[in-house]
Measured scan of single mutants.
Amino acid sequence: MTEYKLVVVGAGGVGKSALTIQLIQNHFVDEYDPTIEDSYRKQVVIDGETCLLDILDTAGQEEYSAMRDQYMRTGEGFLCVFAINNTKSFEDIHHYREQIKRVKDSEDVPMVLVGNKCDLPSRTVDTKQAQDLARSYGIPFIETSAKTRQGVDDAFYTLVREIRKHKEKMSKDGKKKKKKSKTKCVIM
C-alpha cells in the first residue's frame, strides 16, 4: 500500500485542523484551538488504489514558523489553505509557496490551493482571484467548507493525484537520464 505524506499549511484560523478532522473523523470542530502540530493517518481508496494518507496539520501562528522547514522537508505534497473571508490569509499563500519551493529546492512541488469556509456569506476573496492565482502557479484550486464537508475529500484526493503525477514524471525523467548515460565512448 502506497503511503502519501501530505502537509496542510496556511495562516492561523483558516480551518486547516477543521478540514483535516472532517476528512479523518467526519465531524466539524467549530471551536478554535490553535494547533502546534498534529499528525493523522487514514486509509482510503483513490482511483481504485488503496493508500495510506499521513497528514500533518501544522501551526499557522507566526511564533511556530521555525518548525516549518522541518515538516516541509518531509512532506510530499501540500494543501495551501486560505479562508475566503480573510484576504490576508490569501496573500500569505505566496509566502508559504515560496518557502516550500526553497526548502524542497524545487520549482515543481505537488500543491493544491484550497479556499476554505465557502459556506460563509462574508467572502472577501473572489473565486476568480483564487483561480487566477492557482493557474499562475500551475496547481489545482478547490473551494471547501469544513463545516458542510463540501470539497473536503476532493481537496485531499486531488493532492494525492498531483503527487502521483509528480512521481510518474520524475521516474520518466530518471529513465531518460539513465538511457543517456548508457551511451559509451570508444577510443581507438
Rank of each mutant, 00 (worst) to 15 (best):
Y64W: 11
V45Q: 14
S39P: 01
Y32F: 07
C51N: 11
D54C: 03
L23D: 05
G10N: 00
E31N: 08
E63C: 08
Q25D: 14
L23T: 15
Q22R: 13
V14A: 12
V44Y: 10
Y64T: 15
V14H: 12
I21M: 11
H27T: 13
L19H: 13
G15S: 00
L23Y: 11
Q43E: 13
E3Y: 06
Q61T: 14
E31H: 07
G60M: 03
Y4R: 15
T2C: 13
D38I: 01
D57H: 01
D54E: 13
K42N: 13
Q61S: 14
Y4M: 11
K16F: 02
Q25N: 15
E37F: 06
T35P: 01
T20D: 08
G48V: 06
I46P: 11
Q43M: 09
D57S: 01
E63M: 05
G60E: 04
V9G: 04
L52T: 15
I36S: 03
Q25F: 06
K16Y: 00
K42C: 09
G13N: 13
C51K: 08
A11I: 14
I21R: 06
N26I: 04
D57F: 00
G10S: 04
G48R: 10
T35V: 01
K16H: 01
T35N: 01
K5S: 08
K42V: 10
V44P: 11
G12S: 09
V45F: 09
V29S: 10
L56N: 14
Y40P: 00
V45R: 13
C51G: 10
L23V: 10
V14M: 13
Q43T: 13
E31Q: 08
T20Y: 01
G13W: 08
I36L: 09
G12Q: 08
Y4I: 15
I21P: 01
R41Q: 05
E49F: 05
F28R: 03
E49D: 11
E62P: 13
V9F: 12
L19A: 15
D38M: 00
G60W: 03
G10A: 07
L6K: 00
D57V: 02
E3G: 07
G10K: 00
V44S: 12
G48W: 04
I24P: 02
G15A: 00
T20L: 08
I24S: 14
F28E: 02
L23W: 11
V8S: 03
Q43W: 04
V29R: 05
D33Y: 04
I24L: 15
S39Q: 07
S17F: 00
I36M: 06
I55N: 07
V9D: 03
K16S: 07
G10C: 05
V44M: 14
I55A: 08
G48Y: 06
D38E: 02
T58L: 09
E49P: 08
D38Q: 00
P34W: 03
N26D: 12
R41L: 06
V8W: 02
T58G: 06
I55L: 07
H27A: 15
S39H: 03
N26Y: 07
D33R: 02
V44K: 13
V14Y: 07
E31W: 05
L56H: 10
Q43G: 12
D30L: 08
T20I: 09
Q22Y: 04
A18L: 02
G13C: 11
R41G: 06
A11M: 14
G13K: 08
Q22C: 05
Q43K: 14
V45S: 14
K42R: 11
I55C: 09
N26E: 12
C51Y: 13
K16I: 02
D57R: 00
Q43P: 13
C51R: 09
L52R: 10
G60A: 05
T2W: 06
E37V: 03
V44A: 12
A11P: 09
Y64M: 12
V45P: 11
Y4C: 13
V44D: 11
G13L: 10
V29A: 10
G60L: 02
T2Y: 08
G48L: 04
K42W: 06
L6N: 01
L6F: 11
V7L: 08
Y4F: 15
V8N: 02
L6R: 01
D47S: 08
E31I: 07
E49K: 13
K16A: 04
S17E: 01
T2K: 15
T50K: 14
E63F: 04
T20C: 07
E63G: 13
T58N: 04
H27R: 06
V8C: 06
Y40D: 00
D47G: 11
N26G: 13
T20S: 14
I46R: 10
S39L: 13
L52I: 15
D47P: 07
G15D: 01
D38N: 02
I46D: 09
G60C: 04
V44L: 13
K42L: 08
T58D: 04
G13V: 10
G12H: 08
E31Y: 10
K5M: 03
I36H: 05
T35M: 01
H27V: 11
D30C: 11
E31C: 07
D47W: 04
P34R: 05
E49H: 09
L52P: 14
V14C: 12
Y32N: 05
D38W: 00
V9K: 03
E31D: 12
K42G: 07
L52A: 14
I24C: 08
T58R: 03
V7F: 07
R41W: 04
Q43S: 13
L56G: 15
G15T: 01
G12D: 11
I55F: 07
L6P: 04
